[in-house]
Simulated assay, not measured.
Amino acid sequence: MTNPANSATRKARWITLVAACAAVASIGVGALPASAAQPIPAPVVGTIGHRQSVDEEALAKAMAPGGVAAGTMVRTSGPGVRWTKATGPLSHDPAASFRIGSMTKMFTSTVVLQLVAEGRFTLDTPIREVLPETVPAHWKPITIGQLLSHTSGLGLPCEPLADGLGLTPERVVHAWTGCATAPESPVTVQQYNGANCFFLGLAIEKVTGRTYAEEVQRRIARPLGLRHTYVPQAGDSSMPTPSLDAPVPKEPWAWAEGGMISNAPDMERFTKALLGGRLLPPAQQSRLFVMPALSKTSKQPYSAGGLAFFKLSDGTEVWGKTGSMAQYTSGVFATADGRRVVTYSFLPGPAATKDEVIGHVTGIVEAAL
């Protein structure tokens, strides 16, 4: 059973995690001072949850259709544990696809770290060396590593961006780099900013000579057998069948920042492979669990590898990412070894408040892990 006495504490812990990550439209959220290299302490050592089963009573209560969520899908697995269910109007097919939103960033970070391992660039390489025409020469250098860890110093865009059709990665990047003044320096806070992944996506394409979508397929999706995971082409608003969510009138495009489609079994397999060390060499794998110095003052810390880090009420350390697209709020979290994973997606009710949505996520993750 979930302890009601812990609900307020859990809620507070998750506020920034959900609010900062959930909306793909927030690629410009958060103004912050500019970049400066920071010392990185020893990696956080993940603890493994002691519970050998899910709290089915708590999950049933959290997933019941109502004012907070019209419907919810949850899949969780681990040693001796495999549980999946959907409620409300969502598809009850366990392989139903959905738009994963900012969970896409986990794929972007993985490809970037693979390229670091191949010597295409380093974490200390200024992004301007890879994309000379992108960052103004008079700016203090912003490195690949700072983009990954949300310590880049990029703040708000200096020109408006319309969602969906007509956007290109280059145009999005220009919205941040076409400013009359450079970001402040040095950076003093870690601040989540989806714009970082547009820079990283362009860097991936520049050094590989292939599209971001192709690199995700050849490096991650095909090797892991993720048959339902892909980056849609620009202008493609269709969804596979079955799917949790229906197509939307406008193209829900967010590319390397938040544009991918997947399903719960694929996200589970990817997360297990990533945290279990199957996708990265040891040197790059360790970056997933290293916390930048600036993360100590962050309300929601991110690792040097771009993963959100959080402690459950029982002390279990979990890593993963939230995301939102096409009105759905989703996420995947796992223990540090990748053995216990929960994937969820739900449709918030029209009257649901931010705090209620946060509480919904809290209840799901606490009960499932």
Rank of each mutant, 00 (worst) to 15 (best):
T335K: 15
P79V: 07
T108W: 08
G277A: 05
T168Y: 13
A31Q: 14
K272V: 11
V342N: 04
R171W: 10
F270Q: 04
P242N: 10
T208Y: 02
E257S: 00
E129Y: 05
T72Q: 06
N6I: 09
G71D: 02
A20K: 06
S77F: 11
F270A: 04
R218G: 06
T329Q: 12
L165W: 02
G67Y: 00
F199N: 05
T16P: 04
W319V: 05
V189Y: 08
V342C: 02
F270Y: 11
A58K: 05
V207P: 02
H360Y: 04
G305F: 01
T122G: 14
M291S: 09
A273F: 08
M260F: 00
P136V: 11
E268Q: 10
I48F: 15
L288H: 07
R120Q: 03
A117N: 07
R75C: 07
L312C: 06
A12L: 15
V68M: 10
V135P: 08
T335H: 14
E317A: 06
G78M: 12
T72E: 01
H228V: 05
Q233K: 15
V231T: 05
K354C: 04
T168L: 05
G259A: 04
A213R: 01
E251G: 05
V111K: 00
W319S: 09
P301A: 14
S324Q: 13
V29T: 04
S77R: 00
D163S: 03
R222H: 15
A334H: 00
D55I: 03
G28T: 06
W319H: 02
A23G: 09
T211M: 12
F199Q: 11
G323W: 02
G49Y: 11
Q327W: 08
Y344A: 10
F198C: 06
A195Y: 10
H150C: 13
N263G: 09
R82L: 14
W176I: 03
H138S: 14
P4C: 07
I261C: 06
L147M: 14
E366T: 05
V18N: 02
S330R: 05
F98L: 01
Y192G: 01
G306Y: 12
T72Y: 13
E215R: 03
N196A: 07
R269W: 12
L90G: 00
K296R: 14
H360R: 12
A368R: 00
P247F: 09
K250V: 11
K272F: 03
L200E: 09
A20V: 08
C158P: 08
T343G: 01
Q285Y: 08
V81I: 15
E56R: 00
V172M: 13
S330F: 07
T181N: 11
D93A: 10
S330P: 01
N196D: 13
G49C: 09
